[in-house]
Amino acid sequence: MGSYIVRRLGGAIVVLIGIAVITFLLSYALPSDPARMILGMRASQAEVNQLRIQMGLNLPLYEQFWRYFINLLHGNLGQSYQLDMPVTELIEQRLGLTAQLALAAWLFELIIGIPAGIIMALKDRGFLDHTLNVITLIGVSLAPFFLGLELLYWVAFKANLFPAGGSGGIMYVILPGLTYGITGAAYYARLLKTSMLDVLNSDYIRTARSKGAGMWRVVFGHALRNAMLPVMTYGATDIAALFGGIVVIEDVFGYAGVGSLAVNAISQTDVPVIMGTVIFAAVFVVLFNVVVDLLYGLVDPRISY
């Protein structure tokens, strides 16, 4: 167990360094000059050159990377060109809202995906199975911003059930959460169906059935609990990605999370913010997965190291 933890953490550190290298190279290769973007169009070339020196942009590549890396270790993701604030602060301020939406989005995936998965397993290859399969696949096939706009228009505006975008409170997370839920539920449904069928075909369930246990009791009493393990494993990594910001959907709903921060940064070519949100999401995913893996090791004795 101890050596597993060391290996797992070691691997994670390698991955984190890799993330740093890639984001650095991407920022480095971007055609825009950071010094010019910070000082604005009206600054003189001399000043831009001076700032370039100050920022170390004239240093050899490896030295620039080293600076960049040290900054990352200190949680310094640079300064937004557009908002003139540290990127870390900008992300921090939006974390709360993003977390709320991530949770809502995840719940909607489960609310749609789990019942669908159960029914699809029970009615395997029946009409309901095919119907639900098609419905959930339509969800995956929709462009999220397209679906988001439709919900915004018909549900929020025409039916006047929700505010037409904005953030701050439960009324604001339902529609964007639902949008994400619809586009993501199919994965859960499919996963649960598969694992549910495996469980339903296992000996102990057959035994239970043969002893006359009712279908619903079997499903909810035994099968579902066991079948949920792979679903929750997927769910854990899924929610980690959600916390990185639901990029496009946040923007459609004008939701002030990390995702819309990223979209605004893209429209302004605010490179430090774009890269900052990329790194933030990536690091979050890695760390979250490490924690989940280690927790699994603690709670599930079947996993051996």
Partner: peptide, 13 residues
């Protein structure tokens, strides 16, 4: 809010 469609919806609502 940078998207024109939201600007319109917000006003209409």
């Amino acid at each position: 809010d940078s998207s024109p469609e939201s600007v319109l919806l917000h006003f209409e609502q």
